[in-house]
Design a protein around this nucleic acid. Structure first.
Lengths: 106, 106
DNA sequence: TTGACATGCAACCTTTTAGTTGCATATAGA
DNA sequence: TCTATATGCAACTAAAAGGTTGCATGTCAA
């Protein structure tokens, strides 16, 4: 639905890293995820908020902690509905490109 | 290699639209691609430059025109090397998430 | 050669983004 | 209760992104 938020969320390397870490170990707290990113806790919280708004991360409170869980559904939806469109014409476009670049020398 | 440039290039809806149009009809000129985007020619040229820098679009001059060709390879590389990582644990993460969200009611 | 067309370049403006700091709130545990 | 821990909120700053305008360059066609 809101693919734009997902694309924008994936545009930042720190956020992709956070998703990677959650893929490796699900259910980490904010403090956990701060380890390894050279920025303040608040900055990481903002990134996680963006990921949460894009529905890439779901959260659950446990006591004073907020645990973060990866939601791969939007990524898969993008892969299926958007990126796969560029799979089909792949060979066509490549050969087309090559033919034009090589054949139409002026 | 430079996945970041590709992700950033894909983050803008106008640029995704440009890629869509090139997928439908390859080899369009700048003037062609300006049709349908409510912005100046120079703005479109900037977008195309970003797509070209990310290697998502290849260009070729024909006389006074610059023709733009879609290069789906970086998109496929991202789909294969990055997004597919979130395919494998999909069911696991989903069931895991659901179980935790439902089961750990305090 | 001249005028129209297609694009390139650069300065500038505005909004968004990514990060900071400071303080507030809430919970776990002694 | 008191303190340390974990997170939330808001104002602020710097840089990047997205867009504009104006003018320059190069090419086609009469």
């Amino acid at each position: 639905m809101d693919d734009d938020a997902v694309f924008k969320a994936l545009a930042d390397p720190s956020r992709r890293m956070l998703l990677d870490w959650l893929r490796e170990r699900n259910g980490q707290s904010l403090a956990d995820l701060c380890q390894g990113l050279a920025m303040s806790r608040q900055a990481v919280a903002k990134h996680l908020g963006i990921l949460e708004d894009a529905n890439l991360v779901a959260t659950r409170r446990r006591g004073r902690e907020k645990l973060h869980y990866l939601n791969p559904v939007p990524i898969n939806r993008i892969a299926e509905r958007w990126i796969s469109r560029f799979d089909q014409p792949r060979l066509d476009a490549l050969s087309n490109l090559k033919r034009r670049l090589e054949g139409e020398e002026s």
